[in-house]
Amino acid sequence: MEAQVQSNSVEEFVVGCILAIKTTLGEEFQAQVITFDPSSNLLILHILRIIYNLYIYIYNEYAIYFFHFIVCKFFNFYRKIQEGVKSESGPKRNIRLLKANYIKEFDLLGQGEDPLDVNKCFLDLNTLQAREDSAIRQAEIDAERRIGVGVTAEAQSIFDALAKTLPVRWDKTNIVVMNEVHVSSPYLPENVTGGTAAANERVRKVLEFEKKRLQARGAGQ
């Protein structure tokens, strides 16, 4: 699974060259080499375009119910990436630090300039720290919001399951999905109310699926 790239080919990771990379985890993307660090064997890539994304796997288990949803999402994502390619010189980039020994194969697509301008390499530690702090704070707030107050463990696991694919929040003991569909206790498909018909239907299906899954897990234990 690993170590497909021989050490002698390491020199091919010239800074600035544009590669099409397939990883052993099944991802495929085109990226420009920002740098390669031989000691840690890390390749730092500026992602230009994602051809096949691992994230589709993440939603795999919901694929049956959500296929169109995923496709939409993926399509949007892809479009965003395309835009990202256009605005290559824009302020934000998608970066990956990839261990070189997880590259299954790669093709050289071209040679670009060094993406890092050494003369402009400034970082503000204050900014970094502020960024991290606010991110952590945000994460905590989010995490707190994910926890329902006065709800059963089962309700929480349903919520967590829904949260994997959809934007959800608690409204007291009700789960609000996509700000429109309400799921009230005892969180059966028939407790799903509100929202557009499609959204409602979607939530129902997930709920059904989740219930089954939780039951199966409970039985398994």
Binding site: T23, T24, L25, S40, H46, S89, G90, P91, K92, R93, N94, I95, R96, L97, L98, K99, Y102, P115, L116, D117, K120, C121, F122, L123, D124, N126, T127
Partner: peptide, 25 residues
């Protein structure tokens, strides 16, 4: 740990090569 790491995916990274104006508080 290093041996478990395959890749780190970061999105929307403001690489400093793109100018430092944004960094001034």
């Amino acid at each position: 740990q290093s041996e478990d790491l395959v890749q780190v995916v970061a999105k929307g990274v403001p690489l400093p090569a793109n100018g430092i104006t944004g960094y001034v508080g």
